[in-house]
């Protein structure tokens, strides 16, 4: 005797976890057939069953209508402005990565590049330290310059006075008394000796 699929209303209300594997299999086949994803043998079997069983027919029809509605849903297309925004973001990313790639090539790229870059940097720093000529620019006000000139003039005057005093001491005291007299005495003594006095 032909065994018809017996679908109870509870199958469509309760959680599928509670179904037996046999019921699950039958129901799954009806639904798959309605959605068109069952294999050919199952499709034929369900079609025949639906001819003889009103419950199967009703369920099959119900699911078939839903399946048709699902299949006829219009395709949702991505708006163009989304793609434009993506391209803008990518352009920004490109410019950022281009900036990074220069430093990356120098310092985190190949070892030869890295060592050359490091060497160039060291030479540059040393050269700068050696050959730099510190130019200290100092600026003075007019008043400061005048004061400095006055102080210089005063200093020269003081030095001039000291030299003048020293000269008079030498001429008036040191040369006649300390040098001239002993020399005169020596000459007199020499004269006495030569004349036989």
């Amino acid at each position: 005797m032909k065994k018809h699929i017996n679908i109870n209303e509870k199958y469509f209300r309760n959680d599928p976890e509670h179904f037996s594997s046999e019921n699950f299999d039958r129901e799954e086949k009806i639904i798959s057939a309605a959605y068109g994803s069952a294999d050919l043998f199952d499709k034929i079997k369900i079609c025949i069953d639906s001819l003889f069983n009103s419950e199967v027919r009703a369920v099959y029809k119900e699911y078939k209508e839903t399946a048709a509605a699902v299949k006829s849903l219009p395709k949702v297309e991505c708006p163009d402005e989304v793609i434009l925004k993506v391209h803008k973001s990518i352009e920004q990313l490109k410019s950022i990565t281009a900036k990074h790639s220069i430093t990356e090539r120098l310092f985190s790229g190949k070892p030869a590049f890295a060592s050359l870059a490091a060497l160039a940097a060291v030479i540059g720093i040393i050269g700068f330290l050696i050959f730099r000529s510190p130019v200290i620019e100092q600026t003075y006000s007019q008043q400061e310059i005048e004061t400095a000139e006055k102080q210089l003039r005063y200093s020269f005057e003081r030095i001039g006075l000291v030299f003048k005093k020293t000269r008079s001491v030498i001429e008036e005291e040191v040369l006649p008394k300390q040098v001239g007299q002993p020399i005169l005495k020596s000459i007199n003594k020499l004269n006495d000796l030569l004349l036989g006095g």
Partner: peptide
Amino acid sequence: HKNRIYSYSFFMLGNKMDADDVTQEVLI
């Protein structure tokens, strides 16, 4: 892939704004 991404995120999230954001993020 753009339409597939957009369609999936559209149905999953249920609104255009989030679908836009997800599509952008995926494409980036």
